[in-house]
């Protein structure tokens, strides 16, 4: 992967009244990567993206898009955008919507290619207002890609999609990345970031609290999870010094520990009837929750 920087926020701050949305944020989007921006609500994700898109100016710091101000239309001709809340004109057909947005770009795909790539051929002549929620998201995705952008901004792209449509969109995204398109993804579906992203940044209180590959992020939180069926009591296990937390749920006993091997050895020693033993590394969801909780403290 080369490291050309396609979009960048340098020390940007943004306030809305008394609320600090971004606090000296530095962010870089590199060529050829799928970058996921994670964070709880009001962490500053949307504000960061809107500064990169030129929708609002930073109070301090600078936003660059392809080395230019995001306000420059020449810079924005490199990007495609899919927003979470954007109601398109209901009276226009899917094809008409695509033809209109494609006209903003110098070398767009043909409407037929866009429709084919996004599996919308059968809906091409249907008015946008008569589509289901999931179909509308697919049309918005089609508009984001129809101009052959070098950089795609996707805000919660798979919200409202059924599993099959989501898989289709994921495979299209992977194909774009393999063809050199860069993608900025903001999502609440952590498994989406986990499945797709080359690099992840976690925002909290307007700052990046952690960034790196999915594996690097997991490594930040070294804990592992043990799951098993055991007759040992939760209270008893909580007294073991290697155990950080333990509880029982419908899947059985759940133990979180740093030195997981020592705990497993002791479990096997003390409970001869132990069954269904499983060990997991922390998922991105758990990592993300712990990182944001730490930053709030």
């Amino acid at each position: 992967m080369n490291h050309e920087c396609l979009a960048e926020l340098v020390g940007v701050s943004k306030r809305f009244g008394k609320i600090v949305a971004l606090d000296g944020l530095d962010l870089q989007i590199r060529a050829g990567e799928l970058f996921a921006l994670l964070g709880q609500n009001a962490a500053g994700k949307t504000t960061a993206i809107s500064l990169l898109l030129g929708l609002q100016p930073p109070d301090a710091g600078t936003a660059f898009l392809f080395g230019l101000s995001p306000l420059e239309i020449e810079a924005r001709r490199n990007i495609g955008v899919m927003m979470q809340e954007a109601a398109l004109v209901p009276e226009l057909s899917v094809r008409e919507q695509i033809e209109l947005v494609a006209s903003y770009y110098p070398e767009p795909m043909t409407p037929a290619t866009t429709l084919q790539l996004t599996h919308l051929e059968s809906l091409a002549d249907r008015p946008y207002g008569k589509l289901s929620g999931g179909q509308k998201r697919q049309v918005q995705f089609a508009l984001a890609i129809c101009g052959r952008p070098k950089l795609l901004f996707l805000d919660e792209p798979t919200v409202g999609l059924d599993i099959q449509s989501r898989e289709l969109m994921w495979s299209t995204l992977r194909r774009f990345v393999s063809e050199g398109v860069s993608i900025v993804l903001t999502t609440h579906y952590l498994e989406e970031a986990e499945a797709l992203a080359d690099r992840v940044a976690v925002l909290a209180k307007g700052r990046v609290i952690a960034s790196g590959s999915v594996n690097e992020m997991r490594a930040l939180v070294v804990k592992k999870q043990i799951s098993c069926s055991s007759s040992l009591s939760v209270e008893q296990i909580r007294t073991w010094k290697e155990v950080q937390s333990a509880h029982r749920d419908h899947k059985g006993l759940q133990i979180t520990a740093g030195n997981v091997e020592a705990v497993v050895r002791r479990l096997l020693d003390e409970d001869e009837d132990l069954q269904d033993l499983e060990i997991h590394r922390a998922g991105l969801a758990q990592t993300f929750t712990e990182l944001t909780q730490e930053s709030m403290q």
Partner: peptide
């Protein structure tokens, strides 16, 4: 510093005929 040196400065220009077409498409829509 490395990243800043590698930063692209690549705006995309569009022929005026295509820009006019974009205006036309917007008005038509």
């Amino acid at each position: 510093t490395v990243v800043l040196e590698n930063k692209l400065s690549s705006g995309v220009r569009m022929p005026s005929s295509q820009v006019w077409r974009a205006y036309w498409m917007e008005a038509k829509s």
